[in-house]
Design a binder for these strands. Structure first.
Length: 552
RNA sequence: GCGCCCAUAGCUCAAUCGGAUAGAGCAUCUGCCUUCUAAGCAGAGGGUUGCAGGUUCGAGUCCUGCUGGGCGUACCA
């Protein structure tokens, strides 16, 4: 409904502008209405007159007058006026807002969703932590941002694949295996030297114990670290996926680095880079000429010992993504990887891939504040907040919401004490309370025999009051918020909107009785309004994968 | 040194991709429960958007230069 209305109004602007001059016609496609911030500015506002004033050589206000005249003829428009320096403000007819309300009740779970990108494929790669230990807070942020973004893309029509890429090859995995191997030998009382930079966490001991249970002493004579790595990686991946499930995060696919080596993709990628004359050999190593693309120094692709560096399989992986032909690829990772991304992008552009469909969401660091002091998070010191701890102590709803609420692009301080509070201070409950409250009203209504009108035919005139209209408008905007959030890849727009809607609803509830025995017509109308608010709240929370409880 | 990102109320964060008088929540203060959930609502105080310039009808948002912080800058991943 929102888009139908705005498109119609935009068309009126375009037609009016096109009639003025050829130059104006060229610019006309940029003209667009957006929701007005201030109720006094109407429901929708357009800056078209100010944008076009110069090309048409007219004053913005005179030009705005032209638009207002054209808009006033539309049945969608109750009133249009010129305001301020030349804004065109439109007040929508109540009929349209009521139509939108009915659309919500008809579309239910589908309201706010769109088919705009139907037929397009999107890949969201996120978390992608190596299976060398349990997930910690930083990964939680990535998990929530990635999963919410995937949900949003699906909401606007994309066929979305959630993918987890993990490095199961290379030095770190070797270290993991050797750490387990040492612990395993120690379990049998053997002398075993623990590797210098090995993983010291307790979970390594558990894995060793599990290995002993599974295989007994069969691996004692084993010299190679490989079987230990394999065993440990399997267990850790299982733990990681179990932990993620606690946050309601599930993946459609995992992609292993090792498979890229085994299939020859890594070698093929190197060959192709050589063909492009983008590499050279020096000191027994193979280098990529990244300086030709603005890097401060060239980067090593293959070390002098013949092993590829981290970036090489990563390039191969991204080539594979491109070959799988996605319309949009989103990579969610920690900001500390940004220089890594740049190198991958350089390689991709050498191959001539279109970088505009590849989006990196680099989320900034998270610190946790608890009891008034910041908790230092350091994996090396073995001091970290794990995903499991967060999910168990705070629950999936709170954990997810706190991360979804903030832009991924800013460093964030996680207020543990607030998250822990089960009260009105906690924004999650504030939103959920809207839903529970609406459910409660519905229950009371049904007790009194009040039900949704058949075919939604009810007298909507009681909804033309200022307070009702305000709610109708917020509901009307919802599809735009979803579209914006999806197109801009900013999931945090959803919480902002929902908090605004919640505030408006709670205020309304306080001043206006919904079920009023002395006013059956008003009751019927307001009842539908409440059901619509509940539906939108439920849909919005659903995009964040946060639950909408019937009771609290 | 160089690169990326950030700086908004005492605190945590928004601000419809350049729009109208910069908004919420927490904290502080003042009110509101015989009637659908007070896990709520109303009101008050709190700001030179780090600093200085520039671009234009219009800048928290864009460009330049500073200041202050985070991260990166490996033949680690």
């Amino acid at each position: 409904m929102y888009f139908e209305v705005v498109n119609q109004l935009n068309q009126i602007l375009m037609d009016a502008a096109s009639a003025l001059s050829p130059e104006a016609k060229e610019k006309a496609s940029d003209l667009s209405f957006t929701p007005a911030r201030d109720p006094e500015h109407g429901d929708l506002a357009a800056n078209a007159a100010m944008v076009l004033a110069k090309t048409v050589k007219k004053s913005p206000r005179d030009l705005a007058d032209v638009f207002v005249k054209a808009l006033s003829a539309s049945p969608l428009v109750a009133r249009a006026e010129v305001a301020g320096p030349g804004f065109v403000n439109v007040f929508l007819s109540n009929d349209i807002l009521v139509e939108s309300l009915k659309r919500i009740l008809t579309d239910e779970n589908q309201f706010g969703r769109s088919k705009k990108y139907a037929g397009k494929k999107a890949l969201v790669e996120f978390v992608s932590a190596n299976p060398t230990g349990p997930l910690h807070v930083g990964h939680v942020r990535g998990a929530v941002v990635g999963d919410s973004t995937a949900e949003l893309l699906a909401a606007v029509g994309y066929e979305v694949t959630r993918e987890y890429y993990y490095n199961d090859a290379g030095v770190q995995m070797q270290m993991l295996g050797r750490s387990v191997q040492a612990r395993y030998r120690q379990l049998f009382g053997r002398e075993a030297e623990f590797p210098e930079n090995g993983y010291k966490g307790d979970y390594i001991r558990y894995i060793a114990a599990a290995l002993k249970t599974a295989r007994g002493d069969a691996l004692l004579p084993e010299e190679s670290w490989r079987p230990f790595t394999e065993f440990a990686a399997d267990i850790l991946m299982t733990i990681i996926m179990d932990d993620l499930r606690k946050l309601r995060v599930r993946f459609d696919a995992t992609f292993s680095e090792r498979s890229l080596h085994e299939s020859g993709e890594v070698q093929r990628t190197l060959d192709r880079l050589k063909d492009k004359k983008a590499t050279y050999e020096q000191d027994d190593a193979l280098w990529l000429k990244t300086t030709e693309y603005g890097d401060e120094k060239d980067r090593v692709l293959v070390k002098s010992d013949g092993e590829p560096t981290y970036v090489t399989p990563d390039i191969a992986y991204h080539c594979d993504k491109y070959e799988r032909q996605y319309d949009k690829m989103v990579n969610v990772m920690g900001h500390d990887h940004h220089s890594q991304c740049e190198r991958v992008k350089i390689a991709l552009s050498i191959f001539g891939f279109d970088l505009s469909c590849l989006h990196y969401l680099l989320n900034q660091m998270v610190s946790i504040e608890r009891g008034g002091e910041k908790i230092k998070l350091s994996t090396r010191e073995g001091q970290f907040m794990t995903l499991a701890e967060m999910a168990d102590e705070l629950g999936a709803d709170v954990t997810r919401y706190f991360f979804a609420q903030r832009s991924y692009n800013t460093q964030m301080i996680f207020d543990w004490d607030l998250a822990k509070k089960q009260s009105m201070d906690n924004p999650v409950y504030y939103l959920q309370y809207v839903h529970a409250r609406a459910c409660s009203i519905e229950e009371k209504a049904r007790e009194r025999g009040i039900q949704p009108a058949p075919d939604l035919r009810f007298d909507a005139s009681p909804l033309s009051g200022d307070r009702e209209r305000l709610l109708l408008l917020k509901l009307f905007y919802y599809p735009l918020v979803v579209m914006d959030a999806a197109e801009r890849l900013e999931a945090n727009l959803i919480p902002s909107y929902l908090e605004d809607l919640a505030k408006t609803f709670h205020t309304y509830y306080q001043v206006q009785r919904v079920l009023d025995q002395d006013d059956p017509v008003g009751t019927q109308a307001r009842f539908h309004l409440v059901l619509a608010v509940r539906q939108v709240m439920r849909n919005g929370l659903g995009l964040l994968n946060v639950s909408a409880p019937d009771r609290m």
